[in-house]
Computed example of a mutant assay.
Amino acid sequence: MNILITGGAGFLGDRLARTLLQQGTLRGQPIQQLMLADLVPPRDTALLADASVRHHTGDLLAQIPALMAQRWDAVFHLASAVSGECEANFDLGLHANLDTTRRLLDACRAQTLAGHPPPLFFFSSSVAVFGSDAAVPLPAVVRDDTLPTPQSSYGIHKFVCEQLVADYTRKGFIDGRAARLMTVSVRPGRPNGAASGFLSGLFREPLAGQPSVCPVDRDTEVALSSPVNTITGILTVAEASREAFGGRTAINLPALTVSVRQMLQALQDLVGPEVLSLIRDEPDAAVKKIVHSWPSRFESPRAAALGLSPDPDFDSVLRQYAQHHVEAVTHPAARQRLGL
């Protein structure tokens, strides 16, 4: 099994690669090669030390001819320009999201038309495909049959790409699976341009002894998933049979619904008020507009039928981050409370 991961140097791409190497197979087939494609090389030296891992750097759209000169059994398309970037730079969003995905799908199509089996094509969509339109108000709870009406360029890009994946699957060019990821928290590393980035920064930075700002009302509710639960969802969807996945419509992965206030309370309960004191409120109208357009409550029976469930609470999400990124928790009070 030869596997291509776009966005392979990102934190989800890195974690997906490490998980695949750990399990050694995909769909019951041994993994022979992992190609990680991104703008920059992976930072995980242990990952790069594995003989089966290769990496390719540069703008993905420009690199597709070279990348797709080799036949891939599976493509995990995680790369994209994120929400805040797409609002700030319209052309960047079109280039990185729509143009790149279409070109990648066409390369997979050419592979199939050359006589090879249709490759597995996993597309990481987003909760941002949902929003409240004047003609179609967003319901209090998003269900599997809720009509997507995105209210941001990023959300529109994701929804368009979902439909392309569905149509290329209908035509037999790929075995496409699109899954709508919830906001992933807590993300390690540096902040990115996502409007939801504060939902990691509110915890990552204070745990490292650095200040952080809250750009939205603390009673704002959000739909979250931990990194581990997100990767579990991605691989479960990728490995499910066509019949178990059910149709070609994107699947909503499970969501933990929690308010920012509840998240901050979990942080205080876990590591004490000294860490929480590093957070200040600094309203940001642009971030608030985007985040408030996203739904926070989901019922996802399709995901449940695949055995997927949301994280139990935000306390467990914080503990997962502290356990997996001990080196990033440097605040003395946090280290003492966590026994690090």
Results as ranks from 00 to 15, higher is better:
V237Q: 11
V237E: 06
V237C: 15
A238N: 12
A240W: 07
A240V: 10
S241T: 12
R242T: 10
R242I: 14
A244E: 12
A244D: 10
G246R: 06
G247T: 07
G247L: 09
R248Q: 10
T249I: 04
A250N: 09
I251K: 11
N252W: 09
N252F: 14
P254S: 08
A255S: 05
A255K: 00
A255W: 00
L256A: 11
L256Q: 09
V258C: 05
V258M: 02
S259N: 08
S259I: 06
S259A: 07
V260M: 01
R261C: 05
M263V: 05
M263N: 02
M263R: 02
M263F: 03
L264Y: 01
A266F: 04
L267K: 08
L267C: 07
D269V: 02
L270I: 10
V271S: 13
V271Y: 11
V271K: 07
G272Y: 07
G272K: 06
P273M: 13
P273L: 13
P273G: 14
E274A: 14
E274R: 14
V275W: 04
L276D: 03
L276F: 05
I279M: 09
R280T: 15
D281R: 10
D281F: 06
D281P: 02
D281W: 09
D281Y: 11
E282Q: 15
